[in-house]
Simulated assay, not measured.
Amino acid sequence: MEWTGARYADRPTVEVRTRIAAPPERVWALVTDVGLMPSLSSELREVEWLDGAAGPAVGARFVGRSSHEALGDWETTSHVIEYEPCRTFAWAVSDVDNPSAVWRFTLAPAGGGTELTQWMQLGPGRSGLSFAIDRMPEKEQKIVFVRLREFEQAMTNTLAALKKLAEDA
């Protein structure tokens, strides 16, 4: 049977969302705290701002160090590409013009609380996943599908953790 999923060049995306019984300002403080993210992630181990930045702003950069059983350990530099307080925080991984991934948190007021969405896109720039695809090009669609499902589960877990932190504050 032929696999019919997305290819890396398709720039596949994943999106998850949740409603949080907390004001956008409280949720915003959590999603823009990149130092908090490793405690919510099974892959991300450490994050630090670069160039003297103390927090997010368009153009600010941060380095992330990650680990995955199948992909090994790696480090990437991300560039903040969208920053609208209490609304949108997004970053491009590795290269602004040809990122290996783009990640975004979006907040919207919802019934006295906040609807929080996390979205990510693979590619178009090369990433660790590209090396796996290079080794097994016939399995590209399956490799992409599995990685997207991993991201979907991780993002679901991250939003659940953020919801708990925001609602318990």
Rank of each mutant, 00 (worst) to 15 (best):
M1L: 15
A6V: 05
T13D: 06
V14D: 10
V14M: 12
V14Q: 13
V16L: 09
R17C: 10
R19V: 11
R19F: 10
I20V: 15
P24V: 10
D33K: 03
D33I: 04
G35W: 05
L36F: 02
S42D: 13
E43W: 11
R45T: 06
R45H: 01
E48Y: 06
E48S: 09
L50Y: 09
G52S: 14
F62N: 06
V63G: 12
G64A: 13
E69M: 06
A70R: 12
A70T: 09
W74A: 14
W74D: 14
T76R: 08
T77S: 04
S78M: 07
H79M: 00
I81P: 00
E82R: 11
Y83D: 04
C86E: 12
F89Y: 13
A90G: 04
A90M: 06
V93F: 01
V93I: 05
D97S: 06
S100H: 03
S100C: 04
S100E: 07
W103P: 05
G111I: 11
G113S: 14
G113W: 14
T114G: 15
E115T: 15
W119S: 10
L122R: 01
L122T: 02
P124Y: 01
P124H: 03
G125H: 08
G125L: 05
S130T: 13
R135I: 09
R135A: 14
E138M: 05
E140V: 00
Q141C: 05
Q141N: 02
K142F: 03
F145D: 04
E150G: 01
E152H: 09
Q153E: 04
A154E: 10
T156D: 09
A161K: 11
A169T: 07
